[in-house]
Every structure is written in structure tokens, then in C-alpha cells.
Design a protein around this nucleic acid. Sequence first.
RNA 1: CGGGACAUAGCGCAGUUUGGUAGCGCACCUGCCUUGGGAGCAGGGGGUCGCAGGUUCGAAUCCUGCUGUCCCGACCA
Length: 583
Amino acid sequence: MKASQLLSPTLRETPAEAEVISHQLLLRAGFIRKSAAGVYTYLPLAQRVLKKISDIVRQEMDREDGQEITLPIIQPAELWQESGRWNVYGDELFRLKDRHGRDFALGPTHEEIITDIVRGEVHSYKQLPLLLYQIANKYRDERRPRFGLMRGREFIMKDLYSFDRDEEGLAVSYKKMYDAYSRIFTRCGLKFRPVEADAGAIGGTGGTHEFMVIADSGEADIVYCDACDYAANVEKAEAKASIGAKETALELEDVSTPAVKTIDELASFLGVSPEKMIKTLVYRTEKGLVAALVRGDRQLNEIKLQNLVDTVQLHLADDETVRLLTGAAVGFAGPVYLPKSVCVQGEEITVKIIADEEVIHISNAVTGANKTDFHFRNVNHGRDFTPDQVADIRLAEPGEPCPRCDAALKSARGIEVGQVFKLGTKYSKALGANFLDENGKSREMVMGCYGIGVSRTMAAAVEQNYDENGIIWPVSIAPYHVVVVPVSSKDEEQVKAAEKIYQELKDLGVEAVLDDRNERPGVKFKDADLIGYPVRITIGPKTLAENKVEVFVRQQGQTTLEAIDSVAQGVAGLINQEVACLS
RNA sequence: CGGGACAUAGCGCAGUUUGGUAGCGCACCUGCCUUGGGAGCAGGGGGUCGCAGGUUCGAAUCCUGCUGUCCCGACCA
């Protein structure tokens, strides 16, 4: 491709709307343009990157006998009503009506429609397992689209659905996808980590892993262990209880603590360390109130609590409810003598006390006394309070022991680019996707679903590979491998040499761009760095006299001199070697 | 959905306080010149100042309403 004809409108300045680096660079380097909030046009360079990523995904899906299909984006409301998600999915579902007033949705995900196809066409155990996938646009009307391609309302996703006879079959399919995903992100040249994750609203019976591209700009917090393989999203990460020394229980006493509300204030006021305190957080759920207890120096993990209580709604109770429950101002709640129920606006609401495992092992703890400006000292589990449930409900933090091997946990930020789910029979049951087994007995198919954010992976690759001059594409997903730059477009000798090398590269199967624009060299170099071509070949007067050209490798920032006649061959070898290295 | 900010040429911005009919840099077009890290000179094209009302002789500027965009939070297969 000739740069003079390539639609890659680079910008000298960063558009004000772009905050994260991938958004800034993809706009500046002329890869994308915004059409509406969270909706982007992919220009030629982006299209090529997306195709490279998609091709890698396709190869690895096909390798595991995944079969590619295309499912409709416009989906009838009836299917969504059948699964129950028409009402549950909420405002995030893009809805539309046709001219007859019939309801449709733009697919945010495709469990319904794939299950519909399979229930109609697959009836025998002989046809299973079945792995079907597509690479397509997905639509989610995000409350707040942001970070450019990272969280859009229209985005490209690969989704594969597995259908198996039983849980054992599902485990096999799951493993296949897990391994395929690891190969895919490796081949894309990304530093990533599969982590244990929370299943969220999608539910399901088995485990789920998220594939995280490690980057500081990531939205997800993960903890991992270098000594063993343990890695998890903090939403899910197990926290190992640290048990303090047992002391002789002293007599319960209340102590005046005027206007001392926070753990820190209390620690300095009483001279007691936070790990000897019990923090009490009151939550309101559709199943009543929950008083959650964690050690003073710990943080509650709301997702663990929500899963434990099995609620849809979980929000911190408002001040008024806390006052009614404890009979005290906010900041003085505690488990001792906490009422079993409370009357809020004429409604009787039950209260459940749930304690983190560590809490019941604190001897002579300090807690709120449910009396304004008072706390209790010497609170002991069993004698002074008895939780309804004891479980791991706190947030795991870096530095604490790994739940598997006790080495110190580390933390990192990650961008979720893929997730694998064991769905079980949730959708096959709702939509009636059954098959007959060897005994002629009808059974529900056991499903899994596996997503990769293709457009997000492109953005994640930029987040992980850039410098102050621009993008540094991994060779395997770079839009082009090489840019050939004659320093002067008016120097016939340089132009001729450049054209020759460009042609040779193309003949060798190397994807090359010839920067034939009548620009000063600085402009061409800046654009090359910004766009992120892995290799730049520069033909200039200094070296041409010796029949040599410069080869600049973007990743290493190093320049070497090569003979004109062999440079194409050499660069082709380098490119092939790089790609092979990744797969 | 709560809080905050912004909206003037493709991009970055000034002009708004104090109303007088729109400007700068980059980009774009023509010519000259130049060619090793976003050159220089000369000429040129491009904007119903987000939209709709209102005040006024006159509105980018003041008032009202709306829309869009971004950030923080809540939310999120």
C-alpha cells in the first residue's frame, strides 16, 4: 500500500475527549473515529488489526472443532421473554420496534438465539458435543460508555457456545476453550493472566475464568501468587483468615467515645489497633437487612456478601434505617444486643448478622455499642454475640498469604479481554433444549459460553504496547509489518531503491507500506512511530552511497544497516521469526 | 441514575466577564523553496459559534428550555 493513498488521518494533537492512552493513540494514529458515544468507525488500519486478531481467534476455535456461524443481531423479543431476560436485562438492552410495532432487541449476547437454533436442530446425544461460534457486533446500551474502545455500546466479540451431554462433557469443552484462549492471547503478543472470577448475574453451575491483559489502566483488580498458579479477580479472591492470639475473655464494658465514628479515630482515641475492632456495616437487600462484620483493618467484599445472601439488590442502608435499627447515630453500630428485626415505615424487616471468619476469633474486641457516642470493649464471640452465618466476606489484599500456598499475594490491574463460563442448564432449561440419550431418555443440554472482546483486545494491546512516540504493535497483529521510507521523495535514486525494496517485500509476502508522500522526513518518521509499524526501512543519502539502508525495529528502538539487495529477505525472515515465536 | 465540566472550521484553542456581526495555531488547496525527527515564504478554501425560543436597533456573548459530549461515582457476562 502506498501511504499517499492510505486513509490513516493522523492528528498532531490529542482530541480533548480521549482520556485513556489507547483511545488517544488510536484516534491520533488514524485508526478510529467516533460516530456517537461508545460507537466507532474502524478505519483501514484498525480493520487490518481486527482482522489479524479475528483470524487468530478463528484458527484456534477451528482447531478445537468450533464451527463458525453468523447469528442475527436483530432478535425477536419473544425469545428474550422466554428466557426471562426481556425484563431482567433492563436498560442495557437496545430495544426497537418494527413497522408493525413488534418488539426486537439488538443482541448484547446470543444465548437465547443459539439455544433456539440448537433446540430445533439437535435432538440426539450422537450430535454432541457441539461447539458453535461467531465473531460479530454486540450491542449494549451502557449507562456510561467510556475509555474509547474499552467500553463501547457497539463492539466486536467472539462468542462460542458449547453443548454437552453432561457435566463431564462440559468440563472437557471448558478446558478446550481455556487452552485455546491462552494460545490466542499468547499469539497476539499480550501479557495476560487467566484469573478465577465471579460469575455475576449470568449465574451458572461451574467455575468461570477471566482472561486479563495486565495493564495499569485496567478496570479490574486482580491478585496473584508467584509461588503457585493462583490468580483471581479480587471480586472472587479467597481471603485466608488470619487468627489472632486467644486471650482470656474480660468483662464486657461500655466506654464513652464522643463523636468518634471511624475506625481510625477510634484506634487513636482508645489506643487499640484496628485488628482488634469489629466493623459493622448495615446493608439493605430485598431479603431484609444484613449486618456484616469484618475486622477493623479489613474491607468488606460486597460481591461475596451478595452471593452468600443470594440477593439481587445489595446497598448500604440509609442513615435513617441504621438509626432505627441501632437506636444510635451512624458510626456506633455493633453486633452486641442488635435487634433481630426492625420496623421501618410500618414494615417489619428482619436482620441477619453475617460475620467474616476472622471476626469470631478476635478476643476482647471493640465494637459500636448501638448507643450514640459509646463503644463496647472486651466483646467476645459466643458470649456477647452470635452471628447467623460465618463466612469469608472480606476483600483479599496484596501482601497477605496466598489461599493455596501461603506465599505473599501480589496485585495488578487487568483489562478483561475474555471470559469462559460454565452455564450448566440455565438456558437449555428455560428454552427447552433437550436431547435423547442412549436410553431414549430426554435430558437437558449442558452449556458453556466463551467470549472474547475482539475490539477491546485491540485497545488492550495498545494499552500494553506504547511509548511517548506512539503505538508499538506486536508483529502478529500489526496492521502492516513494514513501512519503507525514502528520506526525500524528490531524489530519484532513493525513490527507486525504496520502490524496489517495497516490491521485493510484497513478493515475499511481507505486508508493507511505501511512504511515497512528498513530506519532509520528520513527518514520515513521526507518523511511522505513531502508527506503530514494527519495522521501518529508511533509504537516505548517507547510506545509499554504500548501497545500504537502515532497518529500525520499533520494539527495540534499534537501527541496523543492511545491504539494499538483501534487506527484503532479511526483514521477511525477521517478521516470520517474530510471528513464529508467538505461536 | 447522582455530582461536575464542556459545546466556536477536520483537530487544539482564543473571543463570552463589559452585546456591535468571528479569530489564532495545526491540518487542507495553489505556487516557490526545502528534504535525516511534525521546515519557511506568498496566496487561498472552509464556521447558520450544538439546537430552539426570548431580551435587544443589534446576540458566539445576556435569559430560558432542550440536546450532545467528557470526567467522578453508582452500575456492568
